[in-house]
Design a protein around this nucleic acid. Structure first.
Lengths: 176, 176
DNA sequence: AACAGGTATTTCACCAGTAAAAGATTTGTC
DNA sequence: GACAAATCTTTTACTGGTGAAATACCTGTT
């Protein structure tokens, strides 16, 4: 229970952007901006912050995501599966895998039945790297998030899960 | 009140990632991942969705942000101020301004006292474009967010404001 | 008035990502 | 069994962004 007070005198940048819009277009419903603008801004700031511990290990976030996908699934993945798993294009996966293979963190194996596909797995070095970084990374993220009380973090987590669940389910249907 | 049921059978992708990590490293505290992972994923999905109405007007989100900054402040801005206002590099602003000027949406005026700086403002066409798009854009965002009940949206907005307020205040101090 | 140092903006070289085409292989159908 | 369509991956051409150097200008000091 840090005693920083409950009514914030400082206001976040999105709030002041919204205030500016109100001055120009008083009738505008800025509700969506307050949610989406903040999500975007938080994402930008967090990613910048998150990068710090990874960069020390010489990894970009995208590279770490790829290694993490291999680690957490516990089995080999094809490039296509990795692309789906990390939400990026196949081309990006190709590039990253090439680099990570050269660094000795990832290995490939051709499929014997279907020679179009290859199977990717972590090397021992790759697994050790992920296992070494992850706790550090989570501790750092914890520190960054600690501006919010634990209860707030959980509440936030729950609301975002609801939003995300909805978005992932419906998004295709809303092609405006 | 759509009758989709209140306890979600479907689970968001971050939840299943977390479950995978737990299976591999049961002792890991994945709390931070659940918040940050969801923020990032929501940001990615929302930006993809958001792009739709803007693209119809031939604008990228970055370009719209620049025009919006000029519109909402209500006065001219220098390139440097625009960079700060839109959280991007000066180089990026230079490029965008060049394009938008060629399209007749933005005008420049040199400062008479200090010839290093220039002042940028919307043309009439630029202002009309922003004013035309913005309500459409907000309505679209509203539709996208409607997977969350209004009360949930407000709660989310408030929590994010708290997080953002903290992050913007402290972030420099946490250089890991 | 000349120069050092600071500031505003643009240019340059480069990087990571994408979409679409190309390449390679499998699968289904006649 | 051969050809068309589908599938998996890589290559290609390009885009939009960045940091750092370059450019242009101002300001204060001597």
């Amino acid at each position: 229970m840090t005693d920083t007070g409950n009514q914030h005198p400082r206001t976040d940048t999105v709030a002041s952007v919204v205030r500016q819009w109100h001055a120009v277009h008083p009738s505008l419903d800025t509700g969506p901006m307050e949610v989406i603008g903040r999500i975007n801004r938080c994402a930008a700031l967090l990613q910048q912050a998150e990068d710090a511990p990874l960069r020390r290990a010489g990894l970009s976030r995208a590279e770490f995501d790829l290694l993490g996908a291999l680690r957490r699934t516990g089995h080999e993945l094809t490039p296509g599966e990795l692309a789906r798993e990390t939400f990026s294009s196949g081309a990006a996966v190709t590039k990253r895998v090439k680099q990570l293979t050269e660094r000795g963190l990832v290995e490939r194996r051709g499929d014997t039945r279907d020679r179009r596909v290859s199977h990717l797995r972590l090397t021992d070095a790759g697994r050790d790297l992920v296992d070494g970084i992850l706790p550090e990374q989570l501790a750092y993220e914890e520190a960054v998030l600690s501006v919010l009380a634990p209860a707030g973090q959980e509440e936030l987590s729950g609301l975002l899960a609801g939003l995300l669940d909805g978005l992932e389910g419906r998004l295709g249907a809303l092609r405006g």
